[in-house]
Structure formats: C-alpha cells, structure tokens
Design a protein around this nucleic acid. Structure first.
Lengths: 196, 196
DNA sequence: CGCAATGTGGTCCACTCGGTCAAAAAAATC
DNA sequence: GATTTTTTTGACCGAGTGGACCACATTGCG
C-alpha cells in the first residue's frame, strides 16, 4: 500500500558514505548529500532521520565490513600458513591506500580523528572496531606461534595493536602524498617484526 | 607611531591553535576564536589576515616544534646510547597521548586527516613534518647500528617511518579511549622491533 | 598639543546551515 | 476509477557562517 520508494536505500548509503568519508561530518552539508544522491532533502531524511543518524549508520556499516574482512582474511578457514595470512591481510589493506588517487585513506581513521572526540557513539563504534581487528590479528599471531612461525616470547596482543596502529599511520602518510614505495617500506618494516 | 597592541600575539596563537586542534578547521568558527581569545574579530583578523592564514600559521609553528623536538631528543648531543634516545623519544611522545583527558592526540594527525585532502598547503607542511621526523629517527637508527645496538640487516629508513606511523596509530586509538596499558603495550611492541 | 597611524570592538551583509512542513505526485488497494 | 497511503518535492525557517567595514580609542611623533 502506498507509493513505493523510487531509489535504492543501500546505494544511497554508499554514496552518502563517500561524501562523509572524503569531506568529513561537518564538511558535508545536506545540500552536498542532495547533489550526490540526486534526491530531495525530504527523501533522505524520511529514510534515515537526521544527519547524525545517517552518519552513524554509514560508519557502523563500514566498520562491520572492516571487521568482517579482517576475520575472514585471518581465520584458519582462509587457508595458508598463519604468517602468510597476516602478511597478505596487511599488504592488502595498506596496498589499498597506496593506490588511491586522490588518497582518502580509511573511513575509520577519518571518523576517529574527525568526530570521535565530540561523539561518544562514534567513539564506541571505532573503539570496538579497533579492538576486534586487533583481536583477529592477535589470534592469528598465536596460531603462528603455535606453528613455530613466530617466536613464543613475542606479545601477541601487543603485535595485534601494533599492526592496527601501523595501518592508521600509513593512512595518515598517504593522505599527505608520501611516496608509495615509502608506504610499502613502512608496512614491510612492520611485518619484519613477525619474522624476526 | 600608532596605537600599540594590547595583547600578546604568541599567546593568542596558542589559544587559537588549541581551538583548531580540538574542534578542527571547519568546526571552529570565528566566534569561537573571539570567545577563546577574548578579542574582537577585527583584532584577530588585523593580526593574521583570515581564518585560513591563521590556521596555517598555528599548524606550521606546531610542526616546527614537533620536528625540533624530535631532532633534539634524537641527536647525539642529547647524550646516552642511540637506542635509549630512540626509546626515550617514542615513549615521551606516546606517553603524552595516554595521559590526555580528554584525549586530543597530536595536532599533526588532526590536521592531516581533517584538511590535508582539501588543502595542499597543509598537506605539504604535514608531509615535510613526517619526513623530517622519520629522517631524524632513521639517523638515530643508523647510529645505533654502527654502535652494534641494532642489527645491520634492518632497514633504517623503513624503521623511521614505522615508528612515525605507530605514533599516528596510538593517537587514533587514544582518541577512542582505548585503555592506557594497551597503548603502552603497542609502543613497546614497536620498540621490540629494534631490540630483536 | 595636534596629527597621523594603528589597534579595537561592534555592526552589517550575503550566504549556508540542518531541519520542517504542506502540498503534489505516484503507487497500491478496493 | 476512486480512495488511501506513501513518497517526493521545494519552499521556508531561524540560527549561524566568514568576512568586510566602520567609528572610535589609543598611541608615538613632530
């Protein structure tokens, strides 16, 4: 009953996420969202409430995907040696950033620095994402330790957070257009920790 | 000739920097600057032009201080073993972030993620800062290698950028209120790279 | 003491902001 | 085709924006 929606809601969220991602929360106006989606302001607001809820929705979805990606790539089911899975995951994530032109980095980084201080809901989502990804890496590191690929004396939890941190750092560097080979050297230096 | 300035310009820049630092460029209005400094709009603009020039000035000053701090702490003149200087410097920088309440992290990180994509002047200043700090660390690593404290097979340049990146990561994590001991564990994991 | 130059606080302006709302349009149901 | 229900549109609102501008206060200099 009633008129059917004339647009795809998921597609709309994707377009809106790209706006928030590249221009930030305050840097994205409702008119920007209208122009990017081709929809009227009423349609957008009718679907997801206000600007803040819209932001939260796109960010939560994104973080969910990020965590799922990490778990999938690092889980034993992914196949291959544990150490190879860790390396493959990290190179995939950082490689994604080095290939961007213009560089937009990771939405998680952007949201953290952009609004986490003023928005506790965003801070919570971001914190959970960091912890979940670090935890996924930690599990893989422990697996690698059991397999004898990584020294038992190493702090698996610390390594998990270290690799998460390095990705944030590569993100920052890429945003200032630091040369791509420097970024890969940075990632390689981080991975050397495991091999040592 | 003419009336003398009734306020301290450096002190004004400090207050303004704190505003930009915690609320970002777009999140800081000219009225915020007036309230924070206690000055009229005319005084602020007369001294430094417009909002953008004001931002650039505070950011450039900050990065200059950051680079100077790194060079000073890592230079041979600072005394102590090269490896100890590196560890001391990194612990000082990351420790500063873990003790902040509320966490505001580093202005360099904030500016990079906030405006570097849209502002080439800011991107240039940030890039130079990253490269200069990484270079200072690289020099100290080479010194440590010559002294036999760090293995010669390690990539000094990569380690310089790695440690710069880890600081950015710790910054991001601290902004989401990740526990302090996790942040120190992250830093320790990074420093373990050198010892290994 | 004028006088010129500079600092100061306040006002004004054109514009943008996020959000609301009533009316129009369109689809589903009868 | 009429009715009902929902979407869509676009005008509108009050608040706030960055910046220009101005009258006036305050200073150093001749």
């Amino acid at each position: 009953m009633g008129r059917t929606r004339g647009f795809d809601a998921d597609q709309m969220l994707t377009v809106i996420r790209e706006q928030f991602w590249s221009h930030g929360y305050e840097g994205t106006s409702t008119y920007d969202l209208m122009a990017a989606t081709g929809l009227g302001k009423g349609s957008i607001y009718k679907a997801y409430g206000n600007k803040h809820e819209l932001y939260l929705r796109t960010f939560d979805d994104y973080c969910g995907g990020l965590v799922a990606e990490a778990r999938q790539a690092l889980a034993p089911e992914a196949g291959g040696a544990p150490l190879e899975r860790i390396e493959g995951y990290l190179l995939a994530v950082t490689g994604r950033m080095t290939r961007q032109a213009p560089p937009v980095g990771c939405y998680l980084t952007k949201a953290t620095v952009d609004v986490a201080a003023a928005d506790k809901a965003v801070a919570k989502i971001a914190k959970d994402a960091y912890e979940n990804i670090a935890s996924a890496i930690e599990s893989a590191v422990r697996e690698a330790q059991s397999a004898g690929e990584v020294g038992m004396e190493k702090d698996a939890k610390g390594l998990g957070y270290l690799l998460v941190s390095v990705v944030r750092g590569v993100d920052c560097l890429s945003r200032t257009r630091v040369a791509a080979d420097v970024l890969t050297a940075t990632t390689q230096a981080a991975l050397a920790v495991l091999r040592a």
